[in-house]
Simulated scan of single mutants.
Amino acid sequence: MQIVDFLLAYGPWAWIIAGLILLALELVIPGGFLLWLGIAGIVTGLAAMIQPLSLPMQWGLFGILSLIAIFAWLRFFRARPQVTDRPYLNRRAERLVGREAVLDDPVAGGYGRLVLEDTVWRVAGPDLPAGTRVKIVGADGTVLLIEAA
């Protein structure tokens, strides 16, 4: 009931204050959604200043604006491809696709080991003896997929 009393006492300014508080909370608790709720609160307050609205209409406008803002953010801004100068950052196995190396251990039963750079990798492919030159053709998680070069 305190929220309703606050909204009735301060009218449209309560929405603007609540929106600013939500924007400030977005700085402390990042996640993206409080930003859009804060903007919806400010727009609701401005709309209530321009055209007097009943309290249920204000809540409805806030809810609709919040949903529209969040769905628009998810649809348009999050769906954009991320442009980066390091496309394989945190994807080390994919970075190695196309490279050639020499097997340290034989591949038996479809699996073996390969030392590449500073890491011992698990490899999957056809059975091959140790010392065979192989080409990395793909990655399945942390397992490199190989074939004879």
Score class of each variant (00 low, 15 high):
A124F: 03
A18P: 06
L37C: 09
M49Q: 08
V120H: 09
L34C: 08
L23H: 01
I39V: 15
G32Q: 10
N90P: 00
R86W: 07
Q82R: 14
W59I: 04
G38L: 01
A14I: 02
S54Y: 01
L89T: 05
A149Q: 09
G41T: 02
Y88M: 12
L34P: 01
I64V: 12
P87T: 11
V4A: 11
D5V: 06
P87G: 06
V120I: 14
G19H: 02
L34E: 04
L144C: 03
A101F: 00
I21V: 14
L46P: 02
L27E: 12
F77I: 15
L145W: 04
V43K: 01
L114P: 06
G125V: 11
W73L: 04
A79L: 12
I70F: 10
E26D: 15
L128I: 08
F77E: 13
V4K: 07
E26P: 14
I16G: 00
G60D: 12
L20R: 05
V115G: 02
A148L: 09
L22H: 01
L96H: 04
G112W: 00
T132K: 13
L55G: 09
I50P: 02
G63T: 09
P87Y: 07
T119M: 14
L144W: 01
A148D: 09
L61W: 09
R133D: 07
G32S: 13
L55W: 07
E26N: 12
V97Q: 00
L145H: 05
